[in-house]
């Protein structure tokens, strides 16, 4: 009876049911752990779980309802991530005008997505902003520290605005030839796989982690977490094939790509945090840190996944 109702749902809402089940099960597990081991401190885990409920609701709500709301959400993610990054940068007073232009580039980038102009979306930040922003910085007529400012600002735009905006373009992609999947369902696949991989790497690392993988960059990451997280994510992703045009073999390959790219993104952002001398990028999400602490893996996984799908399934 319930199963029939779920089968009658569209793939997007079926995924909503999957997300709900994962949240309910993990909340029950944590409640049970707290009950069985009252001497241990589960406060942080609890905060994290509550935040997951909020993040999943906001994300799924925005993506499921319509494209415009989804794009507004992703533009806001980019804006907030860029804001966290720029606040930690050592900017010069002379960078003020250039930074105003930097933040203006965010709505413009998402505007290209909203009107579906792929050619502009894909070169706006790597070509036009890359060329124009240093001109604006130069016009402040302060040469000391010029290269550092121009490079750091452009790097942030590439990672957080250009990278994350691929989530937006994926959202508006149509169905590939011969498949019921579309951009929206593949976006749900990508984000679920990337985020569950982060969680599972954390869980495997916490329970079995012994051998540090990058001790000088991210002391909490272990080989056990990395391998266990990736393997279990790949297995789980096979259950989400209804969101994709992929065969079994291709699903394994693609979820390997997402998880490895996501690990790379997370580790790169750890290096950035180490350089800035901070533990978290901010305090927006209780238990997680800043926005960047949550979307770091997506900054890498989104463009990799998007260009793979576009090349192999939209030709």
């Amino acid at each position: 009876m319930i199963l029939d109702t779920i089968r009658a749902l569209s793939p997007v809402w079926q995924m909503g049911v999957v997300i709900l089940c994962v949240l309910v099960v993990s909340t029950i597990v944590i409640a049970a752990l707290r009950f069985l081991q009252p001497q241990k401190n589960y406060a942080e885990l609890l905060h994290r779980t509550i935040s997951w409920w909020v993040m999943a609701s906001v994300f799924f709500g925005a993506v499921a309802v319509n494209d415009r709301i989804g794009l507004v959400l992703f533009a806001f993610l980019s804006f907030w991530a860029m804001k966290e990054y720029v606040t930690l940068l050592k900017t010069r007073p002379a960078d003020h005008g250039g930074l105003v232009w930097t933040f203006l580039a965010i709505p413009i980038q998402y505007y290209w997505i909203a009107i579906g102009w792929y050619g502009m979306f894909v070169i706006f930040i790597p070509v036009y902003v890359f060329l124009v922003l240093p001109v604006r910085l130069m016009l402040s007529r302060e040469t000391a520290g010029f290269v550092a400012s121009a490079s750091q600002i452009q790097w942030g735009l590439m990672a957080f605005v250009f990278g994350l905006s691929h989530l937006g373009f994926l959202l508006i992609m149509p169905s590939p030839v011969g498949s019921d999947a579309n951009g929206r369902t593949m976006l749900l696949f990508l984000v679920f796989v990337a985020e569950i991989s982060d969680v599972l790497q954390y869980v495997w690392g916490k329970t079995l982690g012994r051998h540090k993988i990058l001790p000088s960059v991210s002391p909490n990451k272990t080989w056990e977490g990395f391998l266990g997280g990736i393997a279990s994510t790949v297995v789980l992703s096979l259950g989400l094939r209804f969101l994709t045009p992929f065969s079994v073999g291709e699903t394994i390959l693609v979820s390997l790509m997402i998880t490895v790219a996501g690990f790379g993104g997370g580790a790169v952002m750890s290096a950035v945090k180490r350089d800035f001398g901070v533990k978290d990028f901010g305090g927006l999400i209780p238990g997680h840190g800043g926005m960047l602490d949550r979307v770091d893996s997506l900054c890498y996984a989104a463009p990799i996944f998007f260009h793979y799908v576009r090349y192999f399934h939209f030709r």
Partner: peptide, 12 residues
Amino acid sequence: LPKGTFIPVPFF
């Protein structure tokens, strides 16, 4: 929003 500027940059 330093002295002499009119558009704020969204630093926290």
